[in-house]
Amino acid sequence: MTNLNDFSNKLKEEILKAKSIAIISHYLPDGDAIGSTLTMYGAVRKLNNAVTALRSDTIPTFLKFLPLIDDLILYDEKSKFDLAIILDCGDEDRLGSKKSIIKNSKTSFLIDHHNNNPLFANYNYVDNKASSTCELVFDIVKLMGVSFCKDMAFSCLTGILTDTNRFMYENSSSSTLLKAAELIDTGLDKDYLIRNLYQKTSKQSFLINKILVENTEFFFDGKFAFSYISNEDLNKVGATRDDLDDKISLIRDIEGVEIAILVEDRFDELKVGLRSKEYVNVSELARRFGGGGHNKASGFYYKSSIIDLKKDLMKEIEIILNENK
């Protein structure tokens, strides 16, 4: 469906008649994935108690302070539902092994804001101009006639803040800010939210910064910055993958850098994060490697060595930079 009002009405209709409802997002969840899941969970509970909020992966440490977080349970692939609501998932494979939820559900709804979404649910609402899935969920919840409680607002604002990088990305519109203001006006403790999201750097996260600086290389007159974090680097300072959250911004924010890439060793594959600052659409670069995302923030996974990855990236980035001269 392309009409948000029609989509919201249909979703509410299915929620009201369903005897079992599941809400789930992508694996390796971020603030928008968890935030949209918990926001929709809170809204659906007001319409139908037969709802389960699912997780397909571990919850990042920095999000464990969120209200209702303990209601998230691991998805059992044998479970079947009348209705599945899938959030913030750019394609079916981003559900990982949990994509069986689609065939295990009578009806599925997808809400997302990523580019080139293949629309894999029975009913799909995708708007790649939205700042976040949480912003879309905000609209849908209101169109369903459900009011925001503080817990729902807390989760929704978390997704908006994290996916806009505190309103610094170009996907932040005046509408985004107005919605954030409305969420704050529910009476949530904004200072508590900000402290937990942005003012709780662990010692291990701080020590990773030194390794990140040492591992960073610059190419093409400083327009491209590349860094790498190995499992040995993490073990050296006692860090976890949670401590790598948003480290790529430290590289992107260097003056003169247009494209920043941070690679994480995931044992059997490399997780490649891409960010750009002004004129490069890194989602185009990610798609060349089977990934995707947003214009200024994207990523993909790579199965070969770090040496091969760097060679492949250098070829593609040289083409992109030449195209943008």
Rank of each mutant, 00 (worst) to 15 (best):
G35A: 09
N295V: 15
P60D: 06
N324K: 11
S172D: 00
C156R: 09
S230W: 02
K325W: 11
D189V: 02
K64P: 01
F109I: 01
E269R: 04
Y301C: 01
I251C: 08
F218D: 02
S298Y: 02
M40Y: 04
E316L: 15
I306K: 14
D233G: 10
D139F: 06
N115K: 13
D88F: 04
S174G: 05
I34K: 03
I259P: 06
L274N: 03
K311V: 05
T201H: 03
D71I: 04
L38W: 07
S20I: 09
D112E: 07
L197Q: 01
F65E: 05
N48E: 06
I229P: 02
G293H: 07
I86T: 10
N171R: 09
N295R: 15
F138R: 00
A239E: 04
L4T: 09
T186E: 13
N116K: 10
T216D: 01
K12S: 11
L28E: 02
F148R: 01
S100N: 07
D30R: 08
V51F: 14
E170Y: 03
E255I: 04
R252Y: 06
I261K: 11
Y301R: 13
K271F: 05
D32A: 11
F7L: 13
K64M: 14
L262G: 10
S305I: 13
T58I: 11
F220V: 08
D312H: 14
H113N: 07
F65M: 09
S298E: 04
A130W: 00
L188K: 01
G31I: 11
P118Y: 14
L234Q: 13
S298D: 05
N9P: 00
I184E: 02
N5W: 08
S202A: 03
T133W: 05
M152N: 12
V44C: 03
K277M: 05
L193M: 07
N235T: 08
